[in-house]
């Protein structure tokens, strides 16, 4: 056997092993999703069968219609959308402004501010939760969506700022300087030079923000006390734990779960390229 032949055999074995392992991994990881999807198509009796069945005996798509038409699911979806869209607009906006400040402007306390910002990553959310709750109570914001929306105007989180700053530092300074000579002020340079070049990381941020807000449970649990303001996360949770309009039937909960999961998945499919490229160029470096 020549060396080339040996190499070929090693390559074939490598590919076979890879495909077997990858397929097994994908099946195992997809299992909860498939479980949820198949249950959402069962009748309620089928979900309670012993021995348990994995595949539905018939496809009961009407479960989806039942879920969306009963209870307050349309209101929940509307509330989730309002909160998520607000954040999806303002978090990338405020993040990019701050990141531009760090990456491209002169500021004598830049290093100190950056260090303080990064230190807040360590701050457990629960420590600041209680004073914030008291503060929002003073503002009469409890029971409204405001506590889940207004903070996005004041910086979009340390990690996000860090990522965008890294990305902006990769943009050649010559572009900035040329515009400066032409008399463009910092805000104009931000709008017309830096921001357009950051589109992939901005999309990455927007999609991630939307997915995060869409799925947020803790914030909604603490602040949204009025049923009219409930988001999908709280709505599904309450229906599952307390019964809701139908006593919490598994097939209906799973159908609601599929609807809720569909949104992040469609976003991921739609922006897959941006998501992977946005982060690949920025990278994580000290």
């Amino acid at each position: 056997m020549t060396k080339a032949e040996k190499q070929k055999i090693v390559d074939i074995v490598y590919h076979v092993v890879m495909y077997v392992v990858l397929t097994a991994l994908a099946i195992v990881l997809m299992m909860p999703y498939l479980f949820m999807f198949f249950r959402s198509l069962m009748t309620w009796r089928e979900t309670e069968l012993v021995p348990v069945i994995f595949f539905p005996r018939g496809f009961h798509w009407e479960n989806y219609a039942t879920v969306l038409s009963s209870g307050n699911y349309l209101t929940y979806i509307k509330n989730s959308l309002i909160i998520a869209l607000f954040n999806t607009f303002f978090i990338p906006l405020s993040t990019s402004l701050i990141a531009y400040g760090f990456a491209k402007t002169e500021l004598f306390y830049k290093k100190q501010l950056f260090a303080i910002m990064l230190a807040t990553v360590m701050l457990p959310g629960v420590v600041i939760q209680i004073p914030l709750y008291v503060m929002y109570a003073d503002f009469h914001w409890l029971g409204t969506k405001l506590p889940l929306m207004i903070p996005s105007l004041f910086g979009g989180g340390a990690i996000n700022v860090f990522l965008v700053r890294q990305f902006m530092r990769g943009i050649p300074i010559e572009l900035e300087n040329a515009a400066k000579i032409d008399g463009a002020n910092a805000f104009v340079r931000y709008c017309y030079i830096t921001l357009p070049l950051c589109s992939s990381i901005m999309i990455f941020l927007a999609v991630n923000t939307f997915i995060g807000c869409w799925g947020d449970f803790y914030g909604a649990l603490v602040y949204l006390t009025d049923e009219k303001e409930y988001t999908l996360a709280i709505g599904i949770y309450n229906q599952s734990i307390y019964g809701g309009y139908d006593g919490g039937k598994t097939n209906h909960i799973m159908a609601a779960g599929v609807v809720m999961s569909l949104v992040p998945m469609l976003l991921f499919f739609g922006f897959q390229k941006h998501l992977i490229r946005g982060i690949a160029i920025g990278g994580i470096k000290g």
Binding site: L29, G215, T250, G257, M260, Q272
Partner: peptide, 26 residues
């Protein structure tokens, strides 16, 4: 994509699905 999709299930939904999958009887 196949391996990443399950991570896009929102936390609440995922927890409820797991409660159901880990149920003693069903």
């Amino acid at each position: 994509v196949l391996c990443y999709l399950p991570c896009l299930i929102p936390g609440v939904v995922s927890a409820l699905v797991w409660r159901s999958m880990l149920d003693q009887d069903y």
